[in-house]
Every structure is written in structure tokens, then in C-alpha cells.
Amino acid sequence: MESFVFYIFAFMVVAGGWVVIYSNNLIYSAFSLLFTFVGLAGLYGLLMADFIAATQILIYAGGVLILLLFGIMLTARKTSIEITQSNLPRLPGAIISSLIFLLLMVVIFSEPNWNSATNPGVKETVPVIGKLLMTKYLIPFELASILLLAALIGSVFIARREDS
């Protein structure tokens, strides 16, 4: 059952990524990115990483994608120009991605005992993360808010239309 669900989500991720790359219309690319994000969230869920799954849905599917769509729609002033993407450097891309694939395969198959690890049992990770954030990682947690503040002010400052 779990492997069946895994294959469905993996298919969603791969097919979504395929459309993102090969679609001629940028809008279609952006929307099919939704499938990739949701499929990734499902994969995280299968790995019992509930916090990461929720984060993936909230931030990527709910936020980043909206931002991407706005970005595309904001640039569509001239209807005569078809906004498409061209993935021209195919050979270097193929070489790089096959090298990464090779590296992953080497790492996966050189690790001897994939199946021998005992299942630690299903546990909710969110309260554990919450406790750690409030005690051990308090300083990074507060620093994260400063980072977010800098990101907020910086991005708004860049995106603001200055009336000169």
C-alpha cells in the first residue's frame, strides 16, 4: 500500500517537472509546478516528516507558486510576444544531471544496510520541533525572525515602484 502511494506521488513529481520543463506556455509550467510541490509534500508525508510536509504545502504550494504566477502575469504587457522558455543548453544539462544521478546511485548502493535499520515507530515530529525551538535552538529561532524581517524589508524595497 505504501509503495503504491509512493509511486503515485513520485509520478506526480516527475510528470509535473516534465511539464514544467517542456511546456511552451509559462502559465502551464507554473501550474504544473503545483503538482510537483504537492507530490513532494506527499513524499515527505510518507517519510513521516509531517512538519516538512505541512511547510511544503503552506509555503511552496501556497506562497511561492502564487508569487511565481503573479510574476508571470505581471510581465504580460505585450500580448504579441509569446512568453515561452527555451532550454537551450541541453548537452551540458544532460551531462550535469547524469553526473548527479551517478553520484546519488553510488551513495545509495555503497551504503550497505538500508533495510536493517529498525523502525523507530511512528511519532509526531511537530511537538518535538516546537520544544527544541523553544529551548535548545531559541537563539537561531529568534535570529530567524530577524532574517525574515530583513527579507521582508529588502524584498518590498526592491519591488516597490518608485515614483521618481
Binding site: F51, L58, I66, L67, V126, G130, L133, L148, S155
Partner: peptide, 18 residues
């Protein structure tokens, strides 16, 4: 949308805290 995204990241931090 940019401002919304930043505060959504804040919500992600609120969630384990809650």
C-alpha cells in the same frame, strides 16, 4: 504577495510552537 509570503513563513514557526 511578497509580504504574505513572509508572514506565511512566520505561521510555519507558529505551528510547532502552538
Amino acid at each position: 504577495a511578497l509580504i504574505f509570503l513572509i508572514f506565511e513563513v512566520e505561521i510555519v514557526f507558529l505551528y510547532p510552537w502552538a
